[in-house]
């Protein structure tokens, strides 16, 4: 793989430098070059000024919260009521009157999902628990929305948020060289996340074998 990427970069370099070489030789009009260069310089200066007035947040190294036992532990032991409500990120309350419900996700990428059968009628209550993910000292979970769950006639759609895109601005490498800032974290700890579905006993939940779904109390 690395060979391919090196070759690709090499090719890009060769093309660009051949272009630069040709451009240097190009008898471009002095006036045009001046205009181009000074407008580029102007653009650079303006954007540097703009950058400093942008409402940007400096990264603050948050202490990673790793208190309490694993979320899985609560589910495996059935003590879901003991989970710190701070970890509840999203909740959905539906009333479902059908007898069968199909569970769909969009990317085969469901978080661990526990299904709890309840005696209540027409119950469909979903809770999303999340312990935060820290990257580079940021609590990334604070910037994520959590999954989107929608109920239609006979199916429950759990859309993950794979598509969410985030940006972190970093200084260039000669600056990083003299400080402890890195471009990317070497490793990062995933916080746990779990979807908890409480559903009436008489509703038949249908899902595929490979979906990450466990029935509680079995």
């Amino acid at each position: 793989m690395i060979v391919v990427s090196v070759i690709v970069y090499l090719l890009i370099f060769i093309v660009i430098f051949a272009a630069a070489f040709a451009l240097n030789k190009l008898q471009a009009k002095g006036g045009f070059i001046k205009a181009l260069f000074f407008s580029y310089a102007g653009l650079l200066i303006i954007s540097s000024v703009v950058y400093f007035v942008l409402p940007l947040e400096q990264a603050e190294k948050a202490a990673i919260k790793s208190d309490g036992p694993s979320l899985y532990h609560y589910f495996e032991t059935g003590q879901t009521d003991k989970i710190d409500p701070a970890f509840i990120k999203k909740q959905w309350d539906f009333t479902y009157e059908g007898k069968e419900l199909l569970l769909i996700d969009n990317h085969n990428n469901l978080p661990m999902t526990y299904v709890e059968k309840s005696a209540e009628e027409n119950l469909l209550e979903i809770t999303y628990y999340e312990k935060p993910t820290y990257i580079d000292g940021y609590n990334i979970s604070a910037y994520t929305e959590g999954p989107n769950i929608t109920l239609s006639a006979d199916s429950l759609m759990i859309a993950d948020y794979w598509n969410e895109e985030h940006a972190i601005f970093k200084p260039e490498f000669p600056f990083r060289q003299f400080s402890d800032i890195r471009l990317m974290p070497d490793e990062w700890g995933h916080g746990e996340d779990i979807i908890h579905i409480r559903i009436s006993e008489d509703i038949q939940l249908q899902y595929e074998e490979w979906q990450n779904i466990y029935l509680m109390g079995e």
Partner: peptide, 16 residues
């Protein structure tokens, strides 16, 4: 300049 991604957090791009 670099990016990481996962299902839980989506994608994170690092700009420099």
């Amino acid at each position: 300049t670099g990016s990481i991604s996962s299902g839980q957090i989506g994608q994170i791009h690092f700009y420099s």
